[in-house]
């Protein structure tokens, strides 16, 4: 495929980068990325991926926009209160860049639908806000060998890690089991500074683009922890656990489970 004149202008700052060029930009245009959640992280991740020209963005979310979302969920706006988040995200991303096709799914992600949802995508981004989903997405990506860029935020802190099944660690190598319900506070209980969702989401989008381009070093076997109050980025090594219950040599988790059982929704 040849670039149109509009595309040459739109992507000129990418094309002139030695690491991207016309070939890299075409890889981006042909890429398919699935985002779990159209909230605090899903908004900036999708926004930057749309700007970059990711050809197909899948996004799943079951919620409608509430006023309390707008302090951080920048793809949505005040006129769209009550609208489905996936509809709003589609409008925002496609109007930013008509090269992008956004496929929204209004559902809760579950063990029954996740494999079908992600099977046609190259990379999965987790922007969910709860542990059952985080573990579900991890386990499904490991089983289907899909690269996963996982992000999390709370208060003034964020975390990012890139999971390359078969090559590096997974989320269960880091934290084998979910914390018990109620132990870790949610954003709703503990609060979050809206702007840090932008920092973490932009880091996730950057990881996605690096994976598509095959450039640089992904956050493999590494957890990046961002402390906004001290302006500190800390890299913590996360070795692959040979006995990991999902990605180890003899996995004990071979089927997706009912992750929500006994777990309060946040």
């Amino acid at each position: 495929m040849e670039f149109t004149e509009d595309q040459l202008q739109r992507y000129s700052r990418h094309i002139i980068l030695p690491e991207v060029g016309g070939k890299g930009q075409k890889k981006i245009l042909n890429a398919k990325v699935f985002i779990v959640g159209a909230g605090g992280l899903g908004c900036p991740v999708g926004y930057y991926l749309a700007a970059a020209g990711i050809g197909t963005i899948g996004i799943i979310d079951n919620d409608t926009i509430e006023l309390s979302n707008l302090q951080r969920q920048i793809a949505h706006n005040t006129e769209r209160l009550g609208m489905l988040k996936i509809e709003s995200a589609k409008k925002t991303f496609e109007s930013l860049n008509p090269d992008v096709k956004v496929i929204g799914t209004k559902e809760r992600i579950s063990k029954d639908n996740i494999k079908d949802l992600i099977k046609d995508y190259d990379i999965v981004v987790d922007g969910s806000d709860n542990f059952p989903t985080r573990y579900l997405v991890n386990d499904a990506c490991v089983m289907m060998k899909k690269p996963l860029v996982s992000g999390a935020i709370l208060k003034f802190e964020g975390q990012v890690t890139t999971i390359l099944p078969g090559e590096g660690h997974c989320y269960r190598c880091l934290f084998e089991e979910m914390p018990p319900a109620g132990l870790v506070p949610s954003c709703q209980e503990a609060g979050v500074l809206g702007a840090i969702t932008g920092v973490v989401g932009a880091l996730q989008a950057t990881e996605v683009l690096k994976l598509i381009l095959g450039k640089g070093e992904p956050l493999k076997n590494t957890l990046l922890i961002y402390d906004a109050l001290r302006v500190n980025f800390r890299r913590v090594k996360v070795p692959k656990n040979p006995d990991c219950p999902v990605c180890g040599a003899h996995p004990t988790i071979t089927e997706l489970q009912d992750y929500d059982a006994g777990y309060c929704r946040i």
Binding site: F3, L8, Q9, S12, R13, I15, I16, G21, G22, K23
Partner: peptide, 13 residues
């Protein structure tokens, strides 16, 4: 600029 270089670079690619 930068379209001069964009075009030249794409030609070289």
């Amino acid at each position: 600029c930068p379209y001069t270089f964009v075009k030249a670079k794409l030609a070289v690619e």
